[in-house]
Structures are given as structure tokens and as C-alpha cells.
Amino acid sequence: MKSVAEIGHLIRAERKAQGLRQDDLAAASGVGLRFIVDLERGKETVQLGKVLMVLATLGCSLQLARPGEGQGA
């Protein structure tokens, strides 16, 4: 993932695949509906802690790699 927009797209796709509405995901994640809307739209100023809670609710995780790792190096 290289942008908040990519994360938002993944979250939207997974939410829909699980048959959840935005308000359902917000409630299950402990965040507000506006946060989910902004996150799915790729708003750059979303709070990382809340993003991680939403990802965990969906059963997703965020992986970080150091430069050169995971790129066939």
C-alpha cells in the first residue's frame, strides 16, 4: 500500500464483501461513521490508530517493510 486512498479502497471492498454497511463497520470498530466515510474516500489526515482498529475489525492487517524487503531483494 502506498497511499491512504489505496487503504480506503481495500477497506471499502472488504466491507462490502462482508456485507457490512458503513455504520455497521463504524459501530463494530468503535469509530464514528464520518471516520469510515473519510477513510474510504482516502482522506489524508485519518488517525492511524483508528485505521488499525477498522482493519482489525475486518480481519485485515497492515504490514510494513523496510526498504529493500519484500521486493525480491
Rank of each mutant, 00 (worst) to 15 (best):
V37W: 12
K16L: 14
L10G: 11
L58F: 05
Q47V: 06
R15L: 06
I36P: 04
G32P: 09
A5K: 08
A28Y: 12
V54Y: 03
A26Y: 02
Q18Y: 02
A13P: 09
I11R: 05
E14H: 09
R21I: 03
G30A: 13
I11Q: 02
L48A: 08
E14G: 01
V54E: 03
M53L: 12
E44Y: 04
L39P: 11
R15P: 11
V51C: 07
A17T: 04
A13E: 14
L10Q: 12
D24N: 14
V37H: 13
V31H: 03
G49E: 00
Q18C: 05
V54C: 02
E40K: 00
K43F: 08
R12N: 14
A27P: 02
D23W: 09
R15H: 10
V46F: 01
A26G: 07
S29F: 09
V51K: 02
T57D: 04
V51Y: 00
K16E: 15
Q47C: 00
L58Q: 04
E14S: 12
T45W: 01
R34D: 14
V37A: 13
R34F: 10
G19D: 07
M53W: 05
L55R: 01
A5G: 02
Q47G: 03
Q47S: 04
E6Q: 13
S29A: 15
